[in-house]
């Protein structure tokens, strides 16, 4: 009897694992399908480009404050921490390089994307989820207007446009924050700060790669947010769960993609 129940619970466990796994694969497939459809309908949505501009306003401009303030603090902390370590080796002038490279190569794209997922991604998911729950998407369908062309694609391209812009601003403001801590507060020589930076930051290897990263994160983050909203069960609970999933999935995707991209870029 006991052995039988162990067997039952074991098979149930395996079945749960299998169910979860196949569910994830199915969702991945559905997400890829939505991505493909978004690309197909993009042409249709570009004919009404002001829709995309409107979404750039809501995802990009509205995220400016949080991104810029975070960037400023991240830059300042980087400079403080960097100085603490570098001065032990008598090379506190290298603080400019340290701040600039960490921001441009890693922190700029990654932290911006994480903030974007929290600020704009959740808003996108909740909005689309509610539009679905209140039958707005179905109404659009019935009016012979494709919701993917009218609602999904403009938001997607807005995210892809906004992310590199935000990341570039993040890096710039972060370096400014680092400068303010390093030069006026700590007293590192301003000339050394900038010249060391300029000597060691490469346009293609560092800046262009950083921009490429942020574009990839923009695609991933926005697509995840859109899919979670589009796929959400049309209930209050469904939308709130979808919003949570957006943050979790986006964050993991950003960090995972960051590793993959970095290893590609270093090996190249």
């Amino acid at each position: 009897m006991i052995r039988f129940s162990v067997l039952v619970s074991l098979t149930r466990m395996l079945r749960n694992i299998g169910h979860g796994f196949s569910n994830r694969i199915l969702r991945l497939g559905a997400g890829a399908r939505l991505f493909g459809l978004t690309l197909i309908y993009s042409g249709e949505s570009f004919r009404r480009f002001h829709l995309t501009i409107r979404e750039v306003y809501f995802t990009g401009v509205m995220s400016l404050i949080i991104v810029l303030v975070s960037a400023f603090f991240v830059g300042m902390v980087l400079a403080l921490q960097g100085y603490y370590t570098l001065q032990k080796y008598g090379s506190s002038e290298a603080i400019g390089v340290l701040v600039a490279l960490s921001l441009i190569r890693e922190l700029g794209p990654v932290v911006t994307a994480l903030l974007f997922a929290g600020r704009a991604g959740t808003a996108i998911t909740a909005e689309i989820g509610l539009m679905k729950a209140t039958e707005q998407l179905a109404a659009m369908e019935m009016m012979a207007v494709s919701p993917i062309a009218r609602v999904i694609a403009p938001r997607f391209w807005a995210g892809v446009i906004a992310m590199p812009v935000l990341a570039a601003l993040f890096s710039m403001v972060g370096i400014l924050g680092g400068y303010i801590v390093a030069v006026p507060l700590i007293g590192v020589d301003a000339g050394a700060f900038w010249s060391q930076m300029q000597a060691n930051v490469d346009w293609r290897l560092d800046i262009v790669n950083g921009v490429i990263k942020s574009i990839v994160f923009g695609v991933a983050c926005t697509m995840i947010a859109l899919f979670e909203g589009y796929d959400a069960p049309p209930t209050a609970e469904g939308v709130s769960r979808a919003t949570t999933r957006t943050v979790v999935t986006s964050s993991l995707a950003i960090l995972g993609l960051d590793f993959v991209l970095t290893s590609f870029m270093i090996s190249m």
Binding site: L130, M131, T134, E135, Q136, A138, A139
Partner: peptide, 9 residues
């Protein structure tokens, strides 16, 4: 005409 109106909010 949808049940809840389905106006674009």
């Amino acid at each position: 005409l949808f049940q809840q109106g389905a106006l674009f909010t």
